[in-house]
């Protein structure tokens, strides 16, 4: 058996408008290993959240999975996501209030999740719920508190506790810290890392922030216009990005540097193409300073290289 918990093969997600069919995710292939944090990074509209929704089966009409396969623990789940949703795979959203019922005490919400997914007595469920709260750093005496009495960061901790309660093997965290202050963000990211380490839970971290990726993830998958641009070990990609887009992303992310206010930031020209206007060949070629004829004509894939870019082939050939 492979050490892959989740495998996505040639995933294609489309939405049909009245004029044409738009590719939200186009031929995406990736795998998540057991116990790793995989980052999905890209700008808005890159298809990263859509990928997360497809894994957990939250794709709804008119959006649909129109090609490819999703395999989880040796079972194909893209057509029957209900079997694993919430139980084997759970999700953390950007806005904690999306996952919390404002009218229920947080303890009751935890117990509800635990008894739905596990066959245990009410007494054990209470014990387990308290344990979950302790794990995310919340005093179990707050079992009877309502969500609105928590601060944003604490709410996100409650959501993490809810996501972990059924002992999932995969957690999808979609921009879990985007709505939070920087100081709280660091705490939540540390918490996710710690959970991954102690529980062996795999985490897919979806974010637009390269700095968050570099600090938190083991491997990273860079998406552009619904396609995979580059995938690999985070450290290697941060140190030596191969795809011009990844290079641009890394270089244009501001970093604390006391002298940098005198310099200009690196910037990628232009912006990501609209979904109904994706360029031919490599989707990035209009913004790429090294683009040549092949980039405009043929679409590169991630094959032997870790990046989908014709330039790498050319370099290797030389």
């Amino acid at each position: 058996m492979s050490d892959h918990l989740l495998e996505i093969k040639n995933l294609k997600i489309t939405v049909a408008t009245r004029r044409n069919v738009l590719n939200l995710v186009d031929n995406l292939t990736l795998a998540v290993k057991k116990g790793e944090i995989l980052g999905l990074v890209g700008e808005s509209g890159a298809g990263k959240s859509m990928t997360g929704s497809a894994i957990i089966g939250l794709i709804e009409k008119p959006v649909k999975i129109s090609g490819g396969e999703i395999w989880f623990k040796g079972k194909r789940i893209d057509q029957h996501p209900d079997e694993v949703r919430g139980h084997e795979i759970s999700m953390i959203f950007q806005d904690p209030m999306m996952s919390l019922n404002p009218l229920w005490r947080i303890g009751d919400q935890l117990i509800e999740v635990i008894t739905t997914h596990m066959n245990i007595s009410h007494q054990d469920a209470i014990k387990k719920a308290k344990h979950c709260l302790v794990e995310v750093g919340i005093d179990p005496s707050r079992m009877n508190a309502y969500p609105h009495t928590f601060s944003g960061g604490m709410r996100q901790r409650v959501v993490i506790a809810l996501a972990l309660a059924p002992n999932p093997s995969l957690v999808i965290a979609d921009e879990p810290t985007t709505a939070l202050d920087v100081s709280i963000q660091a705490q939540i990211l540390d918490l996710l890392k710690q959970i991954c380490k102690t529980r062996g839970t795999s985490i897919i971290l979806i974010t637009h922030d390269m700095a968050v990726i570099s600090q938190t993830t083991d491997r990273v998958c860079v998406m552009y216009s619904g396609r995979l641009a580059e995938i690999g070990i985070t450290k290697e990609i941060m140190a030596h990005p191969q795809h011009p887009y990844t290079k641009g992303l890394v270089a244009s992310t501001p970093q604390i540097d006391a002298s940098s206010f005198e310099k200009m930031l690196y910037q990628i020209p232009g912006s990501m193409p609209a979904l109904d206007n994706i360029p031919s060949g490599c989707a990035f070629h209009p913004r790429c300073e090294h683009a040549h004829d092949k980039c405009r004509a043929e679409r590169p894939e991630v094959l032997s290289n870790r990046a989908a870019c014709w330039l790498l082939d050319a370099n290797e050939g030389q």
Binding site: E43, S44, H208, D209, M210, G248, L249, S252, T253, P254, M264, L265, Y266, Q267, I268, P269, S271, M272
Partner: peptide, 11 residues
């Protein structure tokens, strides 16, 4: 804004 666009606006 997205990162690559943020750099453009800051510049």
């Amino acid at each position: 804004l997205d990162v690559s666009v943020q750099a453009q606006v800051l510049n």
